[in-house]
């Protein structure tokens, strides 16, 4: 076997593995979307078949829009997710910068302490959190959710961003200091743009668990005005136990915003990477 065909083989087998993984990962999502536009009869009779003239049915979407408070739920989810990501990125990057740029006594220990949260699930503290929220009157507000999610996202953000911060050339920061830039400007104008790929990575890692979370919305903000989309869809299960169309339609629509966010971040990821390669 010559080198070229060997190379081709290695290449295509890698693609085969990736392809299989993609199919496995996408299968449930696609199944949900396909079945959301089929009549109930066909959902059960042939769940894997594509919709055709016989089975095509948009009634589920109609029900969701008529019966549920769907746009409100989606808006709540979006608000909570976007604000949480923004705060996690801002505070995470600031903490990472301080920990890597200004080593002080105990900074290692502090970094370790902040990273500890990666291994300890925040749900263990649910009762204490609920008590705190009740005491501060934040139950049934989006603020409660945002606060919890920021706390949940920060450990990983600090951990990943610290790693990238140390790679930003110290000569560059020093040159800026000689030129008279303040530490704030160095952070916002020089360092943040250079670690954009890391920020995008953190944003994606932070976003998914927040968007999908059912636990904290159920406990901290179950009121009608503050329901998130996952909680909203759960309510469909209870109310319309037999109406699979509505449930599938709600779930399909829940995928879209998060997909858009992901595409936005992954753009950043790629442009950040190529920019780094040029420098």
């Amino acid at each position: 076997m010559n080198a070229r065909s060997k190379h081709f083989l290695a290449h295509s087998s890698a693609h085969l593995v990736l392809g299989i993984y993609t199919v496995i990962a996408l299968f449930p999502a696609i199944l949900v979307v396909i079945n959301s536009i089929k009549t109930k009869k066909f959902i059960f009779r042939s769940p894997l078949s594509l919709p055709d003239a016989d089975s095509l049915y948009f009634g589920g979407y109609q029900t969701v829009f008529e019966m549920g408070n769907f746009p409100l739920y989606a808006g709540n989810s979006m608000t909570v997710t976007v604000v949480s990501i923004a705060l996690v990125l801002l505070f995470g990057a600031m903490a990472a910068f301080a920990l890597t740029e200004y080593p002080f006594k105990g900074s290692r220990l502090l970094a370790l302490y902040l990273a500890l949260g990666i291994m300890i699930p925040i749900r263990l503290g649910t009762i204490a959190i609920l008590k705190m929220m009740v005491a501060s009157g934040l139950v049934n507000t989006l603020t409660a959710l945002i606060l919890v999610y920021v706390a949940q996202g920060l450990p990983l953000a600090i951990f990943i961003l610290s790693e990238f911060m140390t790679q930003v050339s110290s000569d560059l920061k020093n040159a800026a200091r000689v030129d008279g830039l303040s530490e704030f400007k160095i952070f916002f104008v020089l360092v943040l743009p250079l670690i954009r790929p890391a920020l995008a990575t953190v944003a994606v890692f932070t976003m998914i668990p927040i968007w999908n979370d059912l636990w904290f919305p159920l406990i901290l903000a179950p009121s009608e005005e503050t329901k998130t989309i996952t909680l909203g869809a759960q309510v469909f299960i209870g109310q319309f136990l037999n109406d699979w169309n509505a449930l599938l339609a709600a779930m399909s629509m829940a995928i879209v915003p998060v997909l858009l966010l992901y595409i936005a971040f992954s753009r950043q990821l790629i442009s950040g990477l190529t920019k780094g390669a040029v420098k």
Binding site: S169, D171, L172, N174, A175, A176, V178, V189, L190, P193, L194, K275, K279
Partner: peptide
């Protein structure tokens, strides 16, 4: 009242 030139150029990329 100093200016410094670094080994790695350290130009602002943006």
């Amino acid at each position: 009242g100093i200016a410094m030139v670094f080994q790695s150029y350290a130009l602002y990329p943006h």
